[in-house]
Amino acid sequence: MKLLKTAPVSAWFGMIVILFYVVLMLFAPILAPFGETEIVAYEFEPWSETYLLGTDNLGRDMLSRLIYAARNTMGVALITTFLAFTVGGFMGLLAATLGGWVDQIFSRSIDVLMAIPSLIFALLLLTIFGTSLGNLIVVIALLDATRVYRLTRAVAMTIVVMDYVEAARLRGEGLLWQIRKEILPNIMAPLVAEFGLRFCFVFLMISALSFLGLGIQPPTADWGSMVRDNASLITFGDITPLLPAGAIALLTVAVNFVVDWMLHQSSGLKE
């Protein structure tokens, strides 16, 4: 808690923004003036007292959809990131602890998967399996798990060579005990920071796919597809379609600021 007092302005800004988004996510139905898919007026109504941010291409309330989208986009991104960490993190820990052929097989296969740019790979897989929400989550989680694997393996490697892990091995401790008690507590700090970064990445990827019409499907409100649906307004100089894009940017900036500070802290403490 002492740390919080020394946090720079940017980190404070980030934490407040994240808190704001979490509130939006949790209380969307209470906060939104209209329903998520409710058609309330004509298309592209301008900003007014009833429709604070106007209406979208189908006549739905823009503000309400922005609020609901917080829940949808962030929820999907969070689930995906958790899945990616569960799979990638566990495999990375196994590879680092066991070494030998397990490490070789895992690492070489992951190398090949990472040799395909992830957006392209996602497009390929979504073409084949279709763009349902479940497919979206699994495909992106697996693609991202490769990155999580790399990092987890790398940081776990620096711990595995420590004498205290060797001591645990020589004591006869089992694999899970080594991972749970000796390795995991010592790599939590970088993993938490990485969680923030991966969340941003997943979040941007889902938004990008939605923007391309291949992510979260209508009528579910989602920031990426909201930009796409209303993009034609931009050519008239109306910035309303930029709001969902801005909402994405603001959240990723906030998370990045907090992660940056956390990384700075953990590296600073080591010196």
Partner: peptide, 20 residues
């Protein structure tokens, strides 16, 4: 058999788990 032989390391820093 493992119990019979124990080891003390050069670098006490890396020999003790900092989180325990």
């Amino acid at each position: 058999q493992l119990r019979q032989a124990q080891m003390i390391y050069q670098m006490a820093d890396t020999a003790l788990n900092p989180k325990q």
